[in-house]
Amino acid sequence: MHEMALAESVIDLVEDAARANGVTRVKTVVVEIGTLGHVSPEALHFCFEAVSRDSVAAGARLEIVSVAGAGWCLDCGKSVALAERFGACPECGRHHVQMTAGDEMRVKEVEVG
């Protein structure tokens, strides 16, 4: 359940930004989560609700923007879609693929309430 820790970090970054901008209430929090990473969106929603309660984001909606996996295939010399972290290149079938997207965990922005 490290989603609890991640949710705490999200709230922390949101509170920093709120303080820096004189914001007293946040309505929506937007995060980017890569589909190949280790974050379960359901668990993050659940934990966010729990840890946001006493924060500037109390009652805020968590919007998770899913980032698809992609990689650079060394053999094909181009970007390809990746369905799993250690997956094969969908075009040549080999495993010489370096992941370039899909493990994101970013707080993108907040909508002020």
Partner: peptide, 26 residues
Amino acid sequence: SGPAGVHVPGLSQERIVRIERDILSK
């Protein structure tokens, strides 16, 4: 960052505070 220009439909831009930090940055 991930794919550029991702915006969630329905959020009004002037009420947005950009943060753009990794969750694990601290």
